[in-house]
């Protein structure tokens, strides 16, 4: 696997690897790619991914607003500020 490909995947996955673990990890990643490579030979086109099942309009959820969930319960697994979730300052 190309180093650049690996870096793109790290970015997409929001993961990083220390130089010491990188080689081993790349090897393990390559092994799973090799294992699945065989399916490239299967006949398929984009229609293969079209939805097989569908529901009708009447099956969808009615547009009724429900009481909201208590904010303090949602925020209980973190340390909120002004009832908000906290992240390091974002510069846009």
């Amino acid at each position: 696997m190309e180093n650049s490909t690996f870096e793109v995947l790290c970015e997409a996955s929001q993961l990083s690897f220390a130089d010491t673990e990188k080689e081993n990890f790349m090897e393990r990643l390559s092994s799973i790619i090799e294992f699945t490579e065989i399916i490239k030979n299967i006949d398929a086109d984009s229609s293969s991914i079209e939805p097989q099942n569908s529901v009708s309009l009447g099956d969808l959820r009615e547009d009724t607003a429900l009481p909201s969930f208590p904010a303090e319960k949602l925020l209980a697994n973190t340390e909120p500020l002004f009832d908000c979730y906290v992240i390091p300052k974002i510069m846009e």
Binding site: L9, S13, L15, T36, S48
Partner: peptide
């Protein structure tokens, strides 16, 4: 990482679509 690999660029057709087929 493997999941993102099969969804990236051309791999989408080579792996993901084939797997659905």
């Amino acid at each position: 990482m493997f999941g993102n690999f099969v969804l990236s660029g051309e791999n989408y057709n080579d792996y993901f679509v084939k797997a659905h087929a």
